Simulated assay, not measured.
Amino acid sequence: MTQICYFCSMDLQEFLEEGDKLFLPNLSIDLVIIGFEEGHLKCLLLKMGNKWLLPGGYIRRDQSVDEAARTILKDRTNLEDPHLQFLSVFGDSERRPGLGSEWKDFILNSGVKWDEGYWVNDRFVSLTYYALVDINKTHPTVHNFDEAYGWFHFDALPDIWMDHDQILKKARNRLKEDINRELITHNLLPDKFTMPELHKLHQAILEEKLDRSRFQKKMLASGLFERLPKLQKDTPGRNPYLYRLKKQGV
């Protein structure tokens, strides 16, 4: 039997029966991994059975919560240091993965015996985070608990597992709030980008039209971006300048 991703050296049966010796029971992490492509905000989802769920995992007993979140994010995206922020706690009294038939079917289809007493079938409180990534640098992987991965528009989501649709909604609304306090959206773009690309990104996040001239003046006034001498040559019409985030201390 194959191993369970980065979590441990246990096989699936051993993980279900004894995983609580290595991981904190009743506490998990779920990640909303957000990217931007073709003018749309997208999120990374994993398929289990006939439903899709957020990437996530458990907290080892020797880990801090933030360390576990960073480890799970790196394992799922192969990114070393993406932008990661705490989102919220989800802990409904009936929040039990074992209540869903998809989970039981998955276990049985994996050739492992089913037991309602498994520790992962108990009530779980989820600590949720959201991450901003450049899709082109992201290389998702699938493991024992999922069959496939996909990037989905926030406005065209598939059938979502458990309460993960509520987590996705919370993350999208939080991102709207956060970009009004801090310029973090460049994390969704390549290292070099144009102001029209940044403008389009902010409109997608805020779901509203923004005056391009005022937006560009605001971005440049922030002092965060450095204009490069090289023009973006592969766009029709006017060729806008490329920008990048200023290096710290410059």
Rank of each mutant, 00 (worst) to 15 (best):
A131P: 01
Y58L: 12
D165M: 04
D62H: 15
E116N: 11
I167G: 06
H153Q: 15
G57K: 00
R61P: 15
D105I: 02
G49Q: 05
K169G: 06
L79I: 07
P97G: 03
R181S: 03
K137F: 02
H143W: 07
A156W: 00
L168C: 09
E94S: 12
L127P: 09
R181D: 01
Q63V: 01
R95M: 10
T141M: 02
W151D: 07
K74F: 13
G111I: 02
A156I: 00
M48N: 14
F145V: 13
E67C: 04
H139I: 00
V112Q: 01
W151G: 14
D165W: 01
V133D: 08
G91C: 05
W161L: 05
K169A: 09
G98H: 07
G117E: 12
D159G: 00
L183W: 01
R174C: 07
N144P: 06
S93C: 07
L183I: 09
E177G: 08
N121H: 11
P55F: 07
L157I: 05
D134E: 14
P82F: 03
D105M: 04
D134W: 09
V125H: 13
W52P: 07
G111N: 03
L127C: 06
H153D: 15
K137I: 00
L132G: 10
G150K: 11
T71Y: 01
K170Y: 12
D146P: 10
W119V: 04
F145C: 09
D155Q: 03
V142S: 04
I135R: 12
G111R: 01
K176Q: 14
D66K: 04
S126C: 10
L168D: 05
E102T: 09
I167Y: 00
R96L: 11
N121L: 02
N144D: 10
W119M: 02
R76D: 14
P97F: 12
L175I: 11
I107G: 05
T71D: 09
Y149E: 06
Y129V: 04
K113P: 10
F86R: 12
W114I: 04
D159P: 00
D146H: 13
K113L: 05
Q166K: 15
N180H: 11
W119D: 09
T77Y: 09
A148D: 15
D165F: 03
K74G: 10
L79C: 08
V133P: 14
